[in-house]
Design a binder for these strands. Structure first.
Lengths: 173, 173
DNA sequence: ACTGAAAGTCGTTGCAT
DNA sequence: ATGCAACGACTTTCAGT
């Protein structure tokens, strides 16, 4: 199997740490029902396994003048399908690009771009997108409103996929 | 003006805290060139201003069996344009939906959905999307690869928007 | 607005179960 | 894999500049 199995306590820890990444280990331990030491060791293990990749401050983009969010659909010329790696590296290096996925459908890539305003977006396109080699189409969809924006991966009381019988023993092999 | 002006130190703090949300205040202070107390007060202020909205653990979805990411384009029937609020509330409540934006272009909404596998996505669509009232079109683009995925808002050495003259005084009004 | 020190709190380790 | 206990490190506050 590809992914790690987590017991109820690990999932609770992950859930709490996704909400409150700077919660003290003592409070965390209390809320999951463990001693601080036991809790700390579990967090440690989750970090070492790469399940917890790190911790971040969540910054409100509007409050620092980065209020324009754009979903950019990018298509490549078919003959440049092997120059994608260069494009991907370039795009990754742009701080305005928060997310980039290679996708099925009409476009080859979907990017989420964040900039202060339209003038900045215009500059971004002209300087950083239109200059890429092998681009065939660029389509910008502007975010009118943000309904939901979280990085909280579901871990608790949740569809675990597959059709496995529920496990009652050996929670952490 | 809508957004808050930050000086170089605040921007450095934001940058560091976005990368290492659990860095100790001492190290942070050291890296920005302040005393721990001064640094701590600035962080405090950034939190109180809502510039720092909170802290999160970054969880690797693949490692916990949430390996399928889908960009879902949702269109509404034109006559149900005022029942959007109900749809938005429902969609927000789904843990599989990490992001949802109202956008310009062909679709009305773009959602980023995360599930364990295709079977789960099938269930998600049937149980939580197709059951929404007022939907006209649903289009799923599957993420083949994740080129970049960060929530790190650009704050340092960066396009601040507009054409204002550079400020040299009054960094924190 | 910053520094430095004081007091309280917390993270981290080793040991026993 | 857990709990307890102890030490060192840290956060947070307050007076002084």
């Amino acid at each position: 199997m590809k992914h790690v199995d987590l017991d109820k306590l690990d999932r609770r820890i992950l859930s709490l740490l996704q909400q409150e990444g700077r919660i003290s280990n003592q409070l965390l331990a209390e809320q999951v029902g463990l001693s601080p030491a036991a809790c700390w060791r579990r967090v440690r293990t989750l970090e070492e396994n790469g399940i917890i990749q790190g911790y971040s401050a969540r910054v409100n983009p509007e409050k620092i003048g980065q209020g324009l969010c754009v979903l950019l659909n990018l298509s490549l010329q078919r003959h440049s399908i092997d120059s994608t790696e260069e494009i991907e590296q370039q795009v990754s290096s742009y701080p305005e690009v928060l997310q980039c996925f290679a996708v099925t459908g009409n476009a080859d890539f979907v990017l989420r771009v964040i900039v202060p305003d339209m003038a900045s977006y215009d500059r971004f396109l002209n300087e950083k997108i239109f200059t890429l080699h092998g681009i065939s189409q660029v389509n910008s969809n502007f975010a009118l409103r943000e309904i939901k924006n979280t990085e909280t991966i579901p871990v608790e009381g949740l569809d675990q996929g597959g059709i496995d019988a529920p496990k009652t023993t050996n929670p952490r092999p």
